[in-house]
């Protein structure tokens, strides 16, 4: 669509100006400058991710979504666009879409770590975002479940009330209410459950999203062991030399953590 009219040099000029405004916290001005840059070079995916970041600050979330999708269409392996898209979806109350996008951002980030790219420093915030999405997604499912049960109680009580014999019906209705009540208590009790140690990262004490294992057999979340290795290339338990390349994904534990959070979204903020 840009055809021959694209002027990347001019676009770059406006982008630089936009960056300066963004850094100064002048987001409205930055947005206008990025828009000019995009007009000069509409096929450059990176200009759109500059604008999505600005739009996130301006809380213009539906525009973040459309810009992020444009950027992804131009460049499918687009960690930043998926990262911004997930944040916008969360803000718009669409957690399951947010979760899908944040997972993509995480996967691209891990690939970039293996290639030694500079996106590696994003693993911390992206991990946090995926967990946040999982929690929001769980809360939405939990809401539906609880509302469904209230509806069920109403229906059962109504059906009982339609019965012919009046004596005995009242007792049954009371019994049904009591049983539903108790189930609710059990639920609340369950929510106070402890997070099992096997899914907790020993560095952040948070639930693991992407466990990786060292040769000691101990697993850590990829984001927190990376943070440690930046400071000290040693195994946290033995202090022997440890490099990023020595880490191996722990797929079974990852699946177990995944299943645990799926059922216990509250654990993200235990």
């Amino acid at each position: 669509m840009a055809g021959d009219s694209a002027e990347p040099a001019k676009a770059l000029e406006f982008k630089e100006k936009g960056n300066k405004c963004f850094q100064a916290g002048n987001y409205t001005e930055a947005e206008a400058l990025y828009t000019k840059a995009i007009n000069y070079d509409p096929d450059n995916p990176l200009l759109y991710t500059n604008r999505t970041l600005t739009l996130l600050r301006l809380r213009l979330y539906t525009r973040v979504v459309s810009d992020a999708l444009t950027s992804i269409a131009l460049m499918p392996e687009n960690m930043k666009a998926y990262y911004h898209l997930a944040q916008a979806h969360i803000a718009l109350g669409r957690p399951s879409e947010a979760l899908a996008s944040s997972r993509k951002a995480h996967a691209f980030c891990v690939e970039e770590i293996h290639r030694g790219g500079k996106g590696a420093s994003s693993i911390g915030p992206i991990t946090e975002l995926v967990l946040r999405c999982k929690k929001e997604d769980w809360e939405e499912r939990e809401d539906v479940r609880l509302r469904g049960r209230e509806g069920l109680l109403g229906e059962v009580v109504e059906a009982l009330g339609k019965g012919d014999s009046v004596e005995g019906t009242r007792g049954k209705i009371e019994e049904v209410r009591r049983v539903f009540d108790e189930a609710g208590l059990v639920d609340r009790e369950a929510r106070r459950r402890k997070v099992p140690d096997w899914c907790v990262d020993d560095i952040t004490f948070a639930v693991m999203l992407d466990p990786v294992v060292t040769k000691t057999g101990q697993s850590y979340d990829r984001s927190s062991i990376m943070e440690h290795l930046k400071r000290s290339p040693t195994d946290p338990l033995t202090r022997e030399p440890l490099r990023i390349e020595d880490l191996r994904p722990n797929l079974a534990l990852k699946a177990a953590c995944e299943e645990f959070i799926q059922e216990n979204g509250w654990a993200v903020d235990w």
Binding site: I203, T204, F205, A206, E227, W270
Partner: peptide, 14 residues
Amino acid sequence: TFATKRLQKELQKI
């Protein structure tokens, strides 16, 4: 911060 999140959890644990 990184520290606050971890310390909150440590506090809960101990």
